[in-house]
């Protein structure tokens, strides 16, 4: 019994040093050396392309109605028979309609992370008319901007096509 305890203590310390320090620190060195942009958070001048932000419409393309607090991630966890969810979605539908945007399921629901940086191509196209009008830009130009920002499913089949809202709005800010 005491022998088991002694061995357990020794191996716990060894695991802590090797798996808990050497392994992650080596990975960190590799990440910092070869994938510096990604491993530090994929930051641009305006934010992280992996963390959504609140964009008030219709001068900007807006993302999903997430709380966008990266220090407190997670979904709303409201169930499919929740009255609170019915109310939240109804409110969002009303906001979008007032801005002249046809609601899509992504634009009226919150995500799993609470910081979803993307919208579907359909959700981006649905906002084209409203954004073009608010900015006084030609609709065709804005539509082309959206088309240029669509990322397809990876290798053509992994995941779903999406538009990154931060990159799209960065593009929009330079559009004349």
């Amino acid at each position: 019994m005491l022998l088991h305890v002694r061995r357990s203590l020794i191996i716990t310390v060894i695991f802590f040093a090797s798996l808990g320090l050497m392994y992650p620190l080596t990975e960190t060195a590799i990440g910092q050396a070869f994938f510096n942009h990604q491993s530090n958070g994929s930051l641009t001048q305006f934010g992280s392309i992996l963390v959504g932000q609140k964009w008030a419409g219709p001068k900007w393309f807006q993302g999903r109605p997430d709380p966008y607090n990266p220090m407190s991630t997670g979904g709303s966890n409201l169930g499919p028979r929740s009255q609170a969810l019915v109310n939240d979605v109804a409110k969002q539908i009303k906001i979008l309609k007032n801005e002249g945007i046809a609601p899509t399921s992504g634009l009226v629901t919150t995500s799993g992370s609470g910081i979803d940086p993307d919208i579907s191509p359909a959700a981006a196209y649905a906002q084209v008319d409203a954004v073009a009008k608010a900015r006084g830009l030609p609709v065709a130009k804005v539509r082309q901007l959206v088309t240029n920002h669509i990322s397809g499913a990876q290798f053509g089949f992994l995941g779903s096509p999406y538009v990154n809202v931060l990159l799209l709005n960065e593009g929009l800010s330079t559009l004349k």
């Binding site: 992504g106 629901t109 919150t110 979803d116 993307d118």
Partner: peptide, 9 residues
């Protein structure tokens, strides 16, 4: 697009 509540785009 199915049930998107709590799902990532």
């Amino acid at each position: 697009s199915g049930n998107m509540v709590g799902k990532e785009v």
